[in-house]
């Protein structure tokens, strides 16, 4: 056993307010390789709100997701368990952006397919979200689900959230656009977004 040599992980610390010149490059919020990725192109956008009800600027948001077939671009999603889900060379699945002066963010991506869960379960299409900001001592983790998906009802992660709060993890269809999903993130208080253990 290697337990005697186990060390606890290094402590996280806030990202602070002054990171964007180091962590962000043009195009980091577009996951589609200029539209070449296979699948339905969608816009994911929203606003980050703090406990005082105001918009929060300079929040670093990162998303990680499977491609349109539900395959992750990573060796852990190996051919042996991937079935007929195939990789898309134009889709890496990782994006980054920060909120603007109005607390707003926007990603251009592909609607992910359903992905395997534990055992023989399947997970509803979803996007994993990491949130870093000044005033957050470490990362917050949440997930975005899609409106109108029957699979949401049986999703193992969504099922762990009290029923009255589940809808806060399901994006809204934006008015006047059939490919835009609105997903606001409320850090604290009224309408607080459900966050998962990191």
């Amino acid at each position: 056993m290697m337990t005697d040599s186990k060390t606890t992980p290094s402590a996280g610390q806030t990202v602070g307010p002054f990171f964007n010149y180091a962590l962000l490059r043009d195009g980091d919020n577009d996951l589609t390789s200029d539209g070449k990725a296979v699948g339905e192109i969608i816009i994911v956008e929203g606003q980050v709100i703090d406990g005082a009800g105001g918009p929060l600027r300079d929040v670093l948001l990162e998303i990680w997701q499977a491609n349109a077939q539900g395959r992750y671009n990573h060796p852990a999603d190996a051919p042996a368990n991937s079935g007929d889900r195939e990789l898309d060379e134009n889709f890496r699945g990782f994006g980054r952006t920060l909120t603007d002066g109005d607390g707003c963010y926007r990603f251009v991506t592909i609607k992910p397919g359903a992905v395997p869960g534990e055992g023989n379960q399947w997970q509803a299409p979803h996007i994993a979200v990491s949130i870093f900001a000044a005033g957050l001592t470490r990362r917050l983790v949440t997930r975005l689900y899609f409106p109108g998906e029957d699979a949401n009802d049986a999703d193992p992660a969504l099922s762990g959230v009290p029923e009255e709060d589940r809808m806060r993890l399901v994006g809204d269809v934006a008015e006047g656009s059939d490919n835009t999903v609105r997903f606001n993130i409320v850090l604290q208080g009224d309408g607080e977004t459900p966050f998962f253990e990191d």
Partner: peptide, 18 residues
Amino acid sequence: TVIRSPNKPQYKLPRTLT
């Protein structure tokens, strides 16, 4: 942190491929 830390406890997340 006083107005940016969530009030509610965090939910368990199954450790899946995601």
